[in-house]
Amino acid sequence: MDSHISGTRLFIQGLQKKFGNRLILSSVDLDVKPGEFIAIVGRSGCGKSTLLRLIAGLETPTGGAIIQDGHRISGLNPAARVMFQDARLLPWRKVIDNVALGVGGAGDSQKESAGRLLRQVGLAEYAQEWPGILSGGQRQRAALARALVSRPRLLLLDEPLGALDAFTRIEMQQLIEKLWQEQGFTALLVTHDAEEAVALADRVVLLKNGTVDLEVPISLPRPRQRSSALFASLAGKIRDQVMDSIPTSQKPMVKTMSFIRSRNG
């Protein structure tokens, strides 16, 4: 397809974020290749959303740097689009005009691209409806269309499927994977769902105590068979790692699994 673009390369170095006196991210290091799909997991409140917001330029770091394609990010990141847990569609705009917002307007060419994206996410027949009548899954499809209509080079997804039922979620994961393969953007997905991380990511990153605690490359061939034993065991192990990282339990983590390499040794 001619629609392939090159994703951004992200180089995150010693990233720190404090809110007042509270240190949320102490030192995050992460190297993301162009077009790579990264899943970020970690316990609630560990700073996953904060990390995404920093990359989007919605927050400013208190230390360290995010280098995107050789340039340090300061202010809003123009290459990035964000998908939130709630779709955040404007209720007073028709679905198609919500999508057109992603390309900055309601002109004819914008509407044309918006219509194309709506077809790709399977919402063409809802173009002229108000967002209020859409189901939760359809709203997220519309939000995905809006995020991708401008062909962003970086897509940040903050638990976009967290509120959906299991079937809709799998359907959406396949849609996201398909569009990612077609467009070639770099993707950072925050998720609470270990299966989702294994299904989509090239690499799963565990955030803990304000830093990257663990990186797990997932080299299963795509499309990934959820029923395979390897898939299930990877998901199970990631779940265990997340659960292990309870701040109070300071027991030393034993990392014996061959496919898991710890960043800090």
């Binding site: 989007a56 919605l58 809003l76 123009p78 990035a80 689009r81 964000v82 939130f84 709630d86 955040r88 404007l90 007073w92 917002l101 992603g102 900055g104 809006r146």
Partner: peptide, 29 residues
């Protein structure tokens, strides 16, 4: 007005008058 919508608008590059006209005003209407 839902701060989530305002934040979304900012991610999509809306600021100043366009942000007011497209998000804040209809939200307050």
């Amino acid at each position: 007005v839902d701060p989530g919508l305002i934040e979304m608008g900012k991610v999509y590059g809306l600021n100043g008058w366009p942000l007011f006209r497209q998000i804040i005003l209809p939200g307050a209407m």
